Simulated scan of single mutants.
Amino acid sequence: MVTFLNKFDCARVGWLFLAFFITPITAAQTPNITKIKSKVYGETREILVSLPASYEQDKDKIYPVIYLTDANMQVPHAAPMIHYLAGGISELIVVGIQTFDRHDELSPYHQDGTVFSKTEGAEKLLAFIETEVKPLINQTYRTAPFEILSGHSLGGLFTMFTFARHPEKFDAYFALSPTLAWADGKLLDEIEQSLEGMANNRILVAYSEKETPFVNQYAAFQKFLTLLKTKAPSSLDVNARFISGEDHMTIAHLGLYHALRYTFRDWWLSSNTMVGAPEKFDAHYARLSKRLGYSIRPEFNELWGLTAYLIREQHYVEAHYLIKKWQGYYPNRSAPFYELAQLYLAQDKPIAANRSILQAIENAKPNSRQQRRSQDLQAKIRAKL
């Protein structure tokens, strides 16, 4: 089933901006270079790792991982965008895999169509990722059990090779302008066979430029779309299409954006969903967790923004329900108690508000903006006592 991306909900974006305005987040780190003494390659290889801004702030949080081929080309533009989208999508750990001889590392075939052995070409690169890169990332960082493989051009071919031969290796596959015409389109035959026998739920996103000057590229991707339409099982979550107005290189950025937005669609809970039915909060995250295959914890700033909205619109029962959830997900944080004080104040309950604001002050970092805001609110509350 081929579906299309949802647009941002303007109301949600509004209070997302508010949440980020009142809780500044440090920019994500510059990618660090990690050296691996690879047994697969018999030499030292490098990967680039970029962590989300919240990684050092929230010590209990786990993060999905996106693996990008062609690290030196893709990480500089992809990582900042991925981190910037946090909140609209899941925060992600970004891992870039360096490739040197792209023809011999990213394809399962030589250009003439002859097949690389299992210790060469794409099979060798996949073995490096599976046996050396992934274990290092999972041991070093707090990773969630959700992994994405993304590649552009020949990297997109590598993505489709992995999907066709080893679909169990990743949870989601992003093929951005994949060179499916490589080796006379030989991989398309493998893709067709794999689609017919594929049983596992996976996410597959693939885009290519529509006005391409590469005639063979267009024909190969068109054939690929036909295969998906006629052969893809219902268990496969597919979003694949041509994109107009872009070229082979811009698809690397724009296509990645759309792939992320599609994969993490409905990440936000719409502002009014809980009104009159607070239990829909739990149902939303249960559905999202089921679709992606791991337990998802609501983002801190989403909870803040939604709580502030509910209080402002005088949906007090729903706001109280959400604050309790917020406190459970993020114990010993100041903001939930601050909003609880706001809620009690709005309900003309200054004694309860005072208890909450004292807790907010106690949990805030000394001399922080949050502490100052809490002290200002405390003064307003005391005037009501």
Rank of each mutant, 00 (worst) to 15 (best):
V94E: 11
V94Y: 09
G113E: 10
D112N: 15
H77R: 00
L85R: 06
Q74F: 08
L126Q: 07
G87W: 12
Q74W: 02
T69E: 03
I97F: 05
D112T: 10
L106N: 01
H77V: 12
V95A: 07
K124P: 03
H103N: 14
I82R: 00
L92R: 14
T140Q: 13
Y67F: 14
I93Q: 06
K134V: 11
I66W: 12
I97L: 08
K118H: 12
F116Q: 10
Y141V: 05
T119Y: 01
D112I: 08
K118P: 02
A122I: 01
I137C: 03
D104M: 07
R102N: 08
T114A: 14
A122C: 03
S107Y: 06
P108N: 10
H110W: 09
F128A: 00
E132Q: 02
I137V: 15
T140L: 05
K134N: 02
A71D: 11
V65W: 09
G121V: 07
P108H: 08
H77L: 07
L106P: 07
I66E: 10
L92P: 03
I129Q: 01
F100T: 15
P135F: 00
S107A: 15
T114S: 15
F100N: 08
K134R: 11
P108K: 06
P64Q: 01
T114G: 02
I137A: 04
P80F: 12
S107H: 10
T99A: 09
H110T: 05
A127L: 03
H83C: 12
D104E: 14
P64D: 11
R142T: 11
D70S: 13
G121E: 10
G121N: 05
Q111Y: 04
V75I: 15
Y84G: 07
Y141C: 06
D112W: 05
T131M: 01
I66N: 10
N138V: 03
G121R: 05
P64S: 07
N138T: 05
A78H: 13
T114L: 02
T114I: 03
I89R: 02
Q111M: 06
T119E: 15
P135A: 00
G121C: 06
D112R: 08
D101W: 05
T140D: 04
L126I: 02
I129Y: 02
L136V: 01
E120R: 08
H83P: 13
A71K: 04
M73K: 14
G113F: 01
D70H: 08
V115Y: 00
L125A: 01
T131L: 01
P135I: 00
T114C: 04
K124N: 03
L68S: 10
L106V: 02
I97K: 05
Y109C: 03
G113K: 04
L68K: 09
T99D: 07
S90F: 04
M81K: 01
I82H: 09
T99C: 14
F128V: 00
K124R: 14
P80Q: 12
P80T: 10
T140Y: 00
P64K: 00
G88L: 15
Y141I: 09
Q111F: 07
